[in-house]
Design a protein around this nucleic acid. Structure first.
Length: 424
RNA sequence: GGAGGGGUGGCAGAGCGGACUAAUGCGGUGGUCUUGAAAACCAUUAGCCUUCGCAGGCUCGCGGGUUCGAAUCCCGCCCCCUCCGCCA
């Protein structure tokens, strides 16, 4: 959410930012309602002040034994007027808010301007895609042949886009989670947390999933709780409504959680394999940063996520998303894309974003400046570090051998009882 | 799920129709005193909204209602605690 005062005073800037994203927002409507609300409020407050003084006088006179009937009647009438004005002011405030919460964050000046992903800009590449002297298989075929991915039974147990991991497949998944958590906690300075996987509406609103992405989420039938689509939600909400100490910033958290997404509207996409699942595991990195350093923190966070891929020896590239591809709450975002031989392309495996004060304002997360003074909103950041299911796919495809076995990346072997390869 | 108790400032806790402009204590900050510290004493110690400012308004879990007037009375909801039941 943007600051209403900022929107009021910089409407042209906001208008341009929304247009750059290829979106439309009834900004003039908002400005007009905001103007009217402030006019009503001035009137209302003047009447309330009069009402207060009058009531105080009634109290004083009644204590002296009088009954000021005329004043009581006057205050009664004033009370009616106040009630009407309150209703008007509340309605206007609500209308303003309804528009305001749907305005996306302002893209950072370094974000490439363009209507869609074709305007994304590649920032760097790491690693060389391997050349095969045999016909490489897609990971779903490798996984089924190795008996570690069971798609049919996943569908039987749940529905399509759910997969059963077996034996070395389950072990590989678990090894990756532990490897990533260890890397971030022991070498990158993150504090590990394990948060609730079901969260309430306030939490979903705070990070920006609600109201816009309601259809993307699984909801419980008898309780107003949602399955998290990413650990970003519960972890960012750790400090919702809190005032942090400036000296404690930046705070680094990482969390492994399962994630659940309905993938509404992506019927035909990535239908085979592990790429687009309704349930997947992810290790997430979350930061609460000082506004002055949040963009440096974004670079560091992105590098922390990249380190996972470098240690695993998976070729990747980093892409700066354009205004049209940027998510609702993000001011800037780098996607990490891992090389997948089956498609002969780079595929998103992590998304690292700076949300500036956009989520912090919705979540009311502030910090008290060390020198004293007004509490300010922190900047929140997060990024996958990284998506586990897609990493499994990338390892299977990039480390496959001609005989259908898959070499275990060296960094992972300590986490897999020294196993060097997954064989049929 | 059943029964009871309770949500008041950073924390504890009083107030239970009109001086609430929310007592008091603790904690925090600044100061006096001190070689330094502790103690003591003094001062200070919420957020938000409107406004250029003066100033005004809102907020006692949330939402309604009664009343000239609600932290206080009534109704609904949410959350927490204790006990019982169920349960990994």
């Amino acid at each position: 959410m943007l600051d209403l005062r900022f929107v009021r005073e910089n409407s042209d800037l906001v208008r341009k930012a929304v247009a750059d994203r290829g979106l439309e927002v009834p900004l003039d409507d908002l400005l007009e309602k905001d103007r009217r609300r402030r006019a009503v409020l001035a009137d209302l407050e003047e009447k309330r002040a009069r009402h207060k003084r009058g009531n105080k006088e009634i109290g004083e006179r009644m204590r002296k034994g009088e009954d000021p009937v005329d004043l009581r009647e006057e205050m009664g009438a004033l009370s009616e007027e106040i009630r009407a004005l309150e209703e008007e002011a509340d309605a206007l405030e609500e209308a303003v808010r309804e528009i305001l919460i749907r305005i996306p964050n302002l893209p950072h000046e370094s974000v490439p301007v363009g209507p869609d992903e074709t305007f994304n800009r590649e920032v760097r590449r790491w690693g060389e895609p391997r050349t095969f002297d045999f016909q490489p298989l897609p990971h779903w075929e490798l996984g089924e042949r190795l008996g570690i991915l069971d798609f049919q039974r996943g569908v039987k147990i749940a529905e399509s886009r759910f997969t059963l991991l077996r034996d070395k497949g389950a072990l590989l998944e678990r090894a990756l989670i532990n490897f990533m958590l260890d890397l971030h906690t022991r070498e990158h300075g993150y504090t590990e947390v394990f948060p609730p996987i079901l969260v309430n509406e306030e939490s979903m609103f705070a990070t920006g999933q609600l109201p816009k992405l309601e259809a993307e989420m699984y909801r419980c039938r008898d309780d107003v709780l949602y399955l998290i689509p990413t650990a970003e939600v519960p972890v960012t909400n750790i400090h919702r409504g809190e005032i942090l100490e400036e000296a404690d910033l930046p705070l680094y958290y990482c969390a492994y959680t399962p994630c659940f997404r309905r993938e509404a509207g992506s019927y035909g996409r990535d239908i085979r394999g592990l790429i687009r699942q309704h349930q997947f595991n992810k290790v997430e990195l979350v930061k609460f940063a000082h506004p002055d350093t949040s963009y440096e923190e974004l670079e560091k966070l992105t590098n922390d996520a990249e380190e996972v891929l470098r240690r695993l020896g998976l070729p990747y590239r980093v892409v700066a998303l354009s205004t049209g591809d940027l998510s609702f709450a993000a001011a800037k975002c780098y996607d990490l894309e891992v090389w997948l031989p089956s498609g002969g392309e780079y595929k998103e495996i992590s998304s690292c974003s700076n949300f500036t004060d956009f989520q912090a304002r919705r979540a009311n997360i502030r910090f008290r400046p060390s020198g004293g003074g007004k509490a300010q909103f922190v900047h929140t950041l997060n990024g996958s570090g990284v998506a586990v299911g897609r990493t499994v796919a990338a390892i299977l495809e990039n480390y496959q051998r001609a005989d259908g076995s898959v070499e275990v990346p060296e960094a992972l072997r300590p986490y897999m009882h020294g196993l060097e390869a997954i064989e049929p």
